[in-house]
Design a protein around this nucleic acid. Structure first.
Lengths: 187, 187
DNA sequence: TAGTGATGAGACATCGATATCTCAACATGA
DNA sequence: TCATGTTGAGATATCGATGTCTCATCACTA
């Protein structure tokens, strides 16, 4: 049985998806045995695809980076008004789902190139917020960095609610954007 | 040297404070050796005060519960307007500092009585938000549970910024309350 | 100063997780 | 059917962390 490389890649991707879901749900403490069981493969097989735990985490963050950087680039955040940009950014992260959630859990320990990750994923959102402050579309009494942290805080919590089935994908993006910009008190 | 029980308790409290700070900063993966070193005591001494890791985590969540439940009770959230209540709740959690942050990191795994913790700490805030929705002081197009999650998301992120020295204690409470209620776009 | 008790350092056993290896069973293609 | 290659299960070595123990040292007190 000369299994095609494509099939092998497909299986590896499936394992990564499962690993992302398990990591996002139960945190970094999940073992290789846990991941193998969740993915429905033997532990030895898991090691054939990812020779070390580190390799698996690197593959995971790599997949998240590729998904997120692509979506953020496609969102063209610098070409649309602030509100639309924030909505697009929120949808991009929420669409990445547990891939991004897993990276948040694990931290940037296993990101291959943290500077590149920051440049392609976080920085466009930061730039959008800085522009909002400069255009007086955002409060200037709080540093733009703090506004960025508040936005990602809402985003990450919404993502967890989506994964837990407590919030729809469509709603999540809207809740994040409107809460961030307008707050939850009726105007 | 017949050391007084009071002194022993004081040392134990100091160890818990250090453990809370280390856990809040580096997550649940910190070892007993890490905590002992951070607290400036020998590893054997640490085990004399807390015979197991579980005992230490239990002591930690217990201290956080006592601090938080006291502050929440004193805040009398049901006796003040919504905005003031949210501000008081935010200040209560921020004042607890790394004690609360550590519990967030560890989860409720080591909370002695999760139901009691919820009743005395989370539920008063939930009730405040439900009242806000009922009084039409808060948006009704999103479940109160989701509003609660957004509030705690902002709160926990602000707490981390305070611990990291990127936000002042006074500012943090104001940022959480105003962002949650009014958003960050100028009205 | 002598005695009591706490401390820190280090040795040690144990446990769980990572990582490696072998082997029997199985699926696919010739 | 046969050969090839993949898989799962289990045995094993290794490693780090937990938890236990001893002992020399030190601080405080009588």
């Amino acid at each position: 049985m000369v299994r095609r490389p494509a099939l092998r890649d497909h299986i590896a991707a499936g394992i990564l998806d499962t690993a992302a879901a398990v990591l996002a749900e139960r945190g970094e403490s999940v073992s290789m045995a846990d991941i193998a069981q969740a993915a429905g493969v033997g532990r030895a097989t898991l090691y054939r695809y990812f020779p070390t735990r580190e390799a698996l985490l690197l593959g995971l963050t790599r997949a998240a980076f590729e998904e997120l950087s692509g979506r953020i680039a496609a969102a063209e955040l610098d070409a649309v008004p602030l509100r639309e940009g924030l909505a697009r950014a929120a949808r991009a992260f929420i669409a990445a789902g547990s891939r991004y959630a897993a990276v948040v859990h694990v931290g940037k320990t296993y990101v291959e190139d943290p500077a590149e990750f920051d440049r392609a994923v976080a920085e466009p959102v930061r730039a959008l917020i800085r522009r909002g402050v400069a255009d007086r579309d955002l409060r200037a009494d709080v540093p733009a960095e703090v506004l960025f942290e508040m936005f990602t805080a809402l985003l990450e919590r919404s993502l967890r609610l989506v994964d837990a089935g407590r919030l729809g994908v469509e709603q999540a993006g809207a809740v994040v954007t409107t809460t961030f910009l307008d707050g939850v008190a009726p105007r």
